[in-house]
Design a protein around this nucleic acid. Structure first.
Lengths: 219, 219
DNA sequence: GTTAAGTTACTGACCAGTCATTAACAGTCG
DNA sequence: CGACTGTTAATGACTGGTCAGTAACTTAAC
């Protein structure tokens, strides 16, 4: 009566392992941080044994590097495309904000941000990669949009890089607060959409042209 | 020829120990984080042995709580006084910004902020303490200044709490970037004063009244 | 039967927390 | 004043638990 050929106790899946492990590792790193993350836990979550991790990653640090690269690169490649075509600066900015807000609210952002602000300092190369490729790149993109808007007169003239930095700052901090609603009571009851709208409204106010001929949309 | 009564190998200083230990602990926690900080290192830095720490603090966690409370409370008590008297809203805001910028640039801020964003999540009570007593309190203060300014017409009318949150966001993010200049190249060459001036200018632009009778200072 | 994927039991390093011991200081008395 | 004593601050060797990394063994798959 016994099912004589039972399921094999495990399978060989060399193609899929790296991704399984990276996903599990991101989750555990996100929730515990680098130092406190146990390879046992990552292994369990990935559905493999600890030893298996070492078949694909030389050590914990390399695994961590893998996670960061994987996550960040995935994020970068996802963005950038959609709003580049949009010509109207304000609409382009809106598209960018929407996308960025989605990223900020994703559960990957707080993990990356937390890591960047604490443990990434022990990995100067990774940190610089993050600063240049994620933060810097986003700021340069916004910069271009803003410069277009200054040309057409919908934004006041100012150092576009500074403005981009300000916008970035508003997003980042609100993002971290958003993910800590339970402690930041002043944010807890505000619906997502409203929070984004507040940032948008504030930023556009700061960027609106000085009094003068009320600039109409161009084109 | 021997100096027969040499220095004693150690001294009894029960009054001074707690502060020595807290100072050393702050330094080590700041540089390594909670989990990675070794009590040995804290002891060495404080000039005592590991066992001594346990005479004054029940365990590592209590020591950590001590550091947070000590640091944060010291910060809170330092502020608040000076600009409360200043009646002119813009000048009051300037005073507040100066003070806050000094705090942001101090070497305690990045430590506290880093801890708050990573390890403090394991201490809900401490985290809430930080959110309410530091961030919340600062925002409420700014809020009052802004409301005064809206009354007198130097600021446009809007939800003052939202505006305070925006200002806070600008400061916090710029603060963390400031302390990571080496990676954020776009900030590296900007003198402190200019950075603060940029934030100030941007915020005041966002808050300036809508076009209309250009509001003169009142009183 | 061979190979490569995967497992598991182990080891060595690290470190929070303990405790038996030591030394500084105060007080007391000859 | 100097010896003697009690008290308690302070020390540091040690313990026990945790966990990254290893290596000898097992099993899937062809």
């Amino acid at each position: 009566m016994s099912e004589h050929v039972a399921e094999p106790r495990w399978r060989r899946l060399p193609e899929e392992r790296p991704k399984q492990i990276l996903d599990a590792a991101l989750a555990v790193f996100a929730e515990r941080g680098l130092a406190a993350a146990r390879l046992e836990d990552i292994a369990k979550r990935a559905g493999v044994s600890k030893g298996t991790i070492y078949l694909y990653f030389a050590n914990k640090e390399e695994l961590f590097r893998g996670v960061v690269r994987d996550t960040v690169i995935a994020f970068i490649e996802r963005g950038e495309a959609s709003f580049a075509v949009e010509r109207d600066p304000i609409r382009a900015l809106d598209v960018w904000m929407e996308g960025h807000w989605r990223w900020i609210r994703s559960d990957v952002f707080p993990a990356m941000h937390r890591l960047a602000n604490s443990e990434l300092r022990d990995f100067p190369d990774l940190y610089e990669f993050y600063a240049v490729e994620v933060v810097g790149r986003a700021q340069r993109l916004v910069c271009e949009i803003l410069e277009r808007g200054m040309e057409t007169g919908v934004f006041r003239r100012m150092d576009a890089l500074v403005a981009a930095r300000m916008l970035s700052a508003l997003f980042v901090t609100h993002g971290t607060w958003y993910h800590q609603k339970h402690s930041f009571k002043s944010i807890a009851n505000i619906p997502d959409g409203v929070l984004l709208a507040q940032i948008r409204e504030f930023f556009l106010h700061a960027m609106r042209p000085d009094a003068g001929p009320s600039s109409p949309l161009v084109d």
